[in-house]
């Protein structure tokens, strides 16, 4: 026993070092799961408070830039108002967006030479109306220089109706997904992380999966697009309805197309429409039907296990 205690005393520093490293690694592995680390993140009240105080100061220096972005946002909303006149855009807004599906009707006809000709026509139908609730929030902390996972802290939390796994968008495009929530703050894993986003082209082809490659905060990379898909520079890509973002939100425009002949695919470089360097206001999107959907999906994944 005495020998053992002497041994521990002799190597105490190395033991402590290895112990602390072990704690660090368990924290790192926890923070990379979907649930997130509940203690060490900036949605807790102390760091949230510090960031809030800083933002209150810095806010005044950014008013000019903010004005511009709000003017653009206003112009966009005024265009929308023409269509939906009963949405109150000065408060938290409820938007009812039709969820559509295409019915494909295939008809076969024989022409005069006897060859069979197959034509398919698509009829777009409204399946149901999804209700989204937009909660405006101010960005109080923002990072873009991390390699695997960048996060944003906002000044709204569970008291304002923000919950885990909600989509976050701006007037220009997508931002990310809510990861951790405290009472008055929430952290968001931004699109600038190693998680894919489902996307489609404006004519509905897809899904493709743009992902951030860790370099520039202005671009996403989409690999494995079949080379027969007709794309040109400047085309826009949008979110698809079956992901957790609302449908038809702009992700970005295609800046560069590389065709890889060996595999017969194209690699697209997508310029994000959201400027992550100057993020000021975001909207947390609360889907009223998402809880029901998640419950159902959890049930079916349980069965397959």
């Amino acid at each position: 026993m005495r020998q053992f205690i002497l041994l521990i005393r002799r190597y105490w520093n190395i033991i402590l070092f290895l112990l602390l490293q072990g704690i660090c690694f368990s924290m790192i592995s926890k923070s990379h799961t979907m649930q997130g680390n509940d203690i060490v993140n900036s949605s807790n009240s102390i760091s949230g408070y510090v960031y809030k105080k800083q933002n209150d100061v810095v806010y005044y220096f950014q008013l000019k830039r903010l004005n511009d972005s709000l003017l653009n946002e206003n112009a966009r909303l005024r265009n929308l108002i023409a269509g939906n006149s009963n949405i109150d855009t000065f408060r938290d807004a409820i938007a009812t967006i039709p969820v559509t599906a295409k019915d494909t009707v295939i008809t076969t006809t024989k022409d005069s030479t006897g060859a069979i000709k197959i034509t398919s026509t698509g009829v777009t139908k409204v399946v149901r109306y999804a209700s989204y609730y937009y909660i405006p929030a101010r960005v109080i902390n923002n990072s873009i220089a991390n390699d695997k996972q960048n996060s944003i802290t906002i000044n709204r939390g569970s008291a304002d109706g923000v919950g885990k796994e909600m989509a976050v968008v701006t007037g220009n495009g997508i931002v990310g997904r809510v990861e951790n929530v405290s009472e008055h703050y929430a952290t968001i894993v931004s699109v600038l992380s190693d998680r894919k986003t489902a996307a489609k082209l404006s004519d509905g082809t897809g899904p493709y999966f743009p992902i951030w490659d860790g370099n520039s905060p202005d671009y996403l990379i989409t690999e494995k697009v079949p080379s027969y898909v007709k794309i040109k520079r400047g085309d826009s890509i949008y979110t698809i309805g079956s992901s957790f973002y609302p449908e038809n939100i702009l992700i970005g425009t295609i800046a560069k197309i590389d065709t890889i002949k060996a595999s017969g695919t194209k690699t697209l470089k997508v310029r994000l429409s959201t400027n992550f360097r100057k993020l000021q206001y975001v909207y947390v999107v609360k889907n009223k039907l998402s809880e029901e959907r998640n419950k159902l999906e959890a049930k079916s994944t349980e069965k397959t296990k």
């Binding site: 602390l20 490293q21 704690i23 660090c24 690694f25 368990s26 924290m27 790192i28 926890k30 923070s31 990379h32 680390n37 203690i39 060490v40 993140n41 900036s42 807790n44 102390i46 760091s47 510090v50 960031y51 902390n141 990072s143 991390n146 996972q149 996060s151 802290t153 952290t187």
Partner: peptide
């Protein structure tokens, strides 16, 4: 805690 890196800076 402030940078949401969950233990990397500590290690």
């Amino acid at each position: 805690t402030f940078m949401n890196t969950g233990g990397m800076h500590a290690a």
